[in-house]
């Protein structure tokens, strides 16, 4: 009962020190630190709802669950089935808008 949940696993911390962050990781950290990542997520969420993507995914999930039976579906199954379709059907305009936002951010953060 005493195992501490707050204690970070030690190996990670050790590895971190000799680990040289890649550009992608630096960008990721900058995005998180500035709070931009949360804003981007929120924007993406909004756009995906607006364009009907979420409804589309919802109905796909429903159809899948109906086909397999309500008690025979796991989240993993759903993710496996829906992910490729979900990725493929994000409208280009949404991708372009996010890309634009990220580029602007990078320019302003001067990385």
């Amino acid at each position: 009962m005493r195992n501490s949940i707050n204690r970070p696993p030690t190996p990670v911390a050790e590895e971190d020190q000799d680990h040289q962050p890649t550009l992608q990781e630096i960008i990721n950290i900058k995005l998180i630190e500035s709070g931009e990542k949360e804003r981007l997520k929120e924007l993406l969420r909004e756009r995906l709802i607006e364009c009907g993507w979420r409804d589309e995914m919802k109905s796909l999930c429903r159809a899948f669950a109906r086909k397999k039976g309500r008690n025979n579906v796991t989240v993993d199954d759903l993710v496996q089935v829906i992910t490729p379709k979900g990725r493929a059907s994000v409208p280009d305009s949404v991708k372009a808008e996010l890309l634009q936002r990220i580029q602007t951010f990078l320019a302003s953060a001067s990385i």
Partner: peptide
């Protein structure tokens, strides 16, 4: 609704799902 109208406007969607109708009645 805008969401449905927009969905039909962004044409790049392929849903090769057999016999599923968009279930918005819920």
């Amino acid at each position: 609704l805008s969401s449905s109208i927009l969905r039909s406007r962004f044409g790049n969607r392929i849903f090769p799902f057999d016999g599923d109708e968009p279930d918005t009645s819920n």
